[in-house]
Amino acid sequence: KRPMNAFMVWSRGQRRKMAQENPKMHNSEISKRLGAEWKLLSETEKRPFIDEAKRLRALHMKEHPDYK
């Protein structure tokens, strides 16, 4: 399984929150809205998620050196 990218790290928490606030909303609609919100974030707002994704990628490479 591939490590999560920055968007996936961010959206994991956001998706849960949005699903709780809008229980009838379909997952595909939640995904569209999350994608639009992510695009509006500044580089500074994205930075912690980018850093976490880098950390996860490095850990994955260490644990699975033969993974392509």
Score class of each variant (00 low, 15 high):
40 L>T: 10
27 N>W: 10
60 H>P: 13
45 E>F: 04
64 H>C: 13
18 M>C: 05
3 P>K: 13
65 P>L: 09
62 K>T: 13
14 Q>T: 06
9 V>C: 12
65 P>C: 12
13 G>L: 13
25 M>P: 04
26 H>G: 13
46 K>H: 00
11 S>F: 05
57 R>E: 12
6 A>W: 00
6 A>T: 01
30 I>T: 05
47 R>N: 04
64 H>K: 14
47 R>D: 04
12 R>E: 15
30 I>M: 11
10 W>A: 02
44 T>D: 13
49 F>W: 07
41 L>S: 01
31 S>E: 15
22 N>Y: 08
45 E>S: 05
22 N>P: 01
46 K>R: 09
2 R>K: 10
58 A>C: 09
15 R>V: 09
55 R>W: 04
64 H>I: 12
44 T>L: 09
57 R>Q: 15
11 S>E: 13
62 K>W: 08
33 R>A: 04
51 D>R: 03
18 M>G: 02
57 R>G: 11
61 M>W: 09
11 S>Q: 07
41 L>W: 00
43 E>S: 07
30 I>P: 01
68 K>S: 14
58 A>T: 11
68 K>Y: 07
63 E>R: 08
43 E>I: 09
21 E>Q: 09
66 D>C: 10
10 W>L: 01
42 S>E: 02
28 S>W: 07
67 Y>I: 15
46 K>Q: 05
60 H>R: 10
34 L>K: 00
20 Q>K: 09
50 I>D: 05
12 R>P: 04
64 H>V: 12
31 S>F: 11
10 W>Y: 00
68 K>C: 11
37 E>S: 07
40 L>K: 13
22 N>K: 03
3 P>C: 06
17 K>N: 09
25 M>C: 05
42 S>V: 01
32 K>T: 09
56 L>R: 05
14 Q>Y: 02
32 K>N: 09
24 K>N: 11
2 R>S: 14
50 I>A: 10
29 E>I: 03
49 F>H: 06
13 G>R: 04
56 L>Q: 11
6 A>C: 00
31 S>T: 15
38 W>R: 02
34 L>G: 03
45 E>G: 02
13 G>F: 14
20 Q>T: 08
56 L>G: 06
20 Q>H: 07
48 P>M: 02
63 E>G: 08
44 T>Y: 06
36 A>E: 15
2 R>N: 08
65 P>Y: 11
59 L>N: 12
64 H>N: 13
8 M>A: 14
10 W>D: 05
17 K>R: 11
59 L>Q: 11
15 R>I: 09
44 T>F: 08
50 I>T: 06
21 E>V: 01
32 K>S: 11
54 K>T: 08
19 A>S: 09
30 I>D: 02
5 N>K: 02
11 S>G: 04
53 A>T: 02
54 K>V: 08
50 I>G: 05
39 K>M: 09
3 P>T: 13
68 K>A: 12
5 N>M: 02
3 P>N: 07
48 P>N: 00
14 Q>G: 04
66 D>R: 07
47 R>K: 09
53 A>H: 02
5 N>E: 09
17 K>W: 06
60 H>Y: 11
54 K>I: 07
26 H>E: 14
55 R>L: 05
42 S>W: 00
19 A>F: 08
41 L>N: 03
42 S>G: 06
47 R>A: 12
17 K>C: 03
24 K>D: 10
35 G>Y: 15
48 P>L: 00
67 Y>L: 12
47 R>Q: 12
4 M>H: 04
66 D>I: 06
46 K>M: 00
30 I>S: 02
38 W>Y: 05
63 E>H: 10
11 S>C: 12
35 G>H: 08
10 W>H: 00
13 G>M: 11
48 P>A: 02
64 H>E: 15
65 P>A: 13
40 L>H: 08
1 K>E: 11
43 E>W: 07
50 I>K: 14
66 D>F: 05
45 E>L: 03
34 L>P: 00
59 L>E: 15
27 N>K: 09
27 N>M: 13
9 V>T: 02
13 G>K: 04
31 S>V: 13
65 P>Q: 14
22 N>G: 06
5 N>Q: 04
42 S>Y: 00
39 K>A: 14
53 A>F: 03
19 A>L: 11
67 Y>C: 14
54 K>S: 09
52 E>A: 03
9 V>W: 00
57 R>H: 08
22 N>I: 06
40 L>V: 10
32 K>H: 07
37 E>A: 09
67 Y>M: 12
60 H>V: 11
8 M>L: 10
27 N>T: 10
49 F>Q: 02
61 M>S: 14
10 W>C: 01
50 I>M: 10
43 E>P: 11
56 L>D: 04
16 R>E: 15
67 Y>V: 14
66 D>W: 02
51 D>T: 14
12 R>L: 14
31 S>P: 01
28 S>G: 06
32 K>C: 07
30 I>K: 02
11 S>D: 06
27 N>R: 06
43 E>H: 09
20 Q>V: 06
60 H>I: 08
2 R>L: 12
18 M>L: 13
4 M>T: 11
3 P>F: 05
16 R>C: 14
15 R>W: 11
25 M>D: 03
36 A>V: 07
14 Q>F: 03
35 G>D: 15
67 Y>G: 15
4 M>E: 11
6 A>H: 01
53 A>P: 01
59 L>F: 11
58 A>Q: 12
38 W>N: 03
48 P>V: 04
45 E>C: 03
29 E>M: 02
3 P>E: 15
52 E>S: 03
59 L>H: 10
64 H>A: 13
5 N>C: 10
1 K>M: 12
23 P>S: 05
39 K>S: 10
12 R>K: 14
39 K>N: 09
1 K>G: 10
65 P>E: 15
52 E>P: 00
50 I>P: 04
19 A>K: 11
22 N>M: 02
11 S>N: 03
46 K>C: 03
39 K>T: 07
60 H>S: 14
58 A>N: 12
5 N>I: 05
50 I>S: 04
47 R>W: 02
16 R>P: 15
43 E>V: 05
62 K>M: 11
13 G>Y: 09
39 K>H: 09
41 L>T: 02
20 Q>P: 00
35 G>M: 13
22 N>F: 09
15 R>N: 04
1 K>A: 07
31 S>H: 06
38 W>K: 04
45 E>M: 05
10 W>Q: 00
8 M>V: 10
48 P>Y: 02
20 Q>M: 10
3 P>A: 09
14 Q>W: 00
24 K>R: 11
18 M>Q: 05
29 E>Y: 00
51 D>G: 03
62 K>D: 13
48 P>E: 04
23 P>G: 06
12 R>Y: 09
41 L>I: 04
18 M>T: 04
52 E>C: 03
68 K>M: 11
21 E>D: 07
19 A>N: 15
27 N>E: 15
13 G>E: 15
60 H>E: 15
17 K>P: 04
57 R>L: 09
60 H>T: 14
14 Q>L: 06
30 I>Q: 05
37 E>V: 04
55 R>Y: 07
5 N>V: 02
1 K>D: 15
40 L>G: 10
20 Q>D: 15
68 K>T: 12
45 E>T: 01
2 R>W: 05
58 A>S: 13
21 E>N: 07
42 S>M: 02
27 N>F: 09
58 A>F: 09
27 N>V: 07
18 M>K: 03
43 E>K: 05
21 E>C: 01
55 R>N: 06
30 I>W: 01
6 A>K: 00
56 L>T: 06
21 E>I: 03
1 K>I: 03
18 M>N: 00
40 L>Y: 03
38 W>F: 02
8 M>F: 10
25 M>L: 10
68 K>D: 15
5 N>R: 02
15 R>S: 10
28 S>F: 05
62 K>N: 11
28 S>Y: 15
58 A>K: 14
19 A>M: 14
12 R>G: 12
56 L>V: 07
63 E>V: 11
56 L>W: 04
60 H>M: 14
1 K>V: 08
66 D>M: 10
54 K>P: 01
53 A>R: 00
1 K>W: 10
18 M>F: 08
6 A>V: 00
23 P>R: 01
5 N>S: 11
41 L>K: 08
25 M>V: 06
63 E>I: 04
11 S>H: 00
4 M>N: 08
20 Q>Y: 09
32 K>W: 06
67 Y>D: 15
17 K>T: 10
25 M>F: 07
37 E>T: 06
65 P>R: 11
11 S>K: 00
3 P>I: 05
42 S>I: 01
3 P>M: 05
11 S>W: 00
53 A>Y: 01
31 S>G: 07
35 G>Q: 15
26 H>F: 04
14 Q>V: 04
28 S>I: 05
24 K>Q: 14
49 F>N: 00
50 I>N: 04
11 S>A: 12
34 L>W: 03
44 T>C: 10
63 E>C: 05
7 F>M: 05
17 K>V: 08
67 Y>P: 14
54 K>D: 14
56 L>K: 05
13 G>Q: 11
12 R>D: 14
4 M>V: 15
4 M>Q: 07
30 I>G: 01
1 K>R: 06
13 G>I: 15
21 E>A: 05
18 M>V: 06
31 S>A: 09
57 R>A: 14
49 F>A: 06
44 T>K: 13
59 L>C: 12
18 M>D: 03
58 A>G: 11
40 L>R: 12
59 L>R: 10
61 M>L: 13
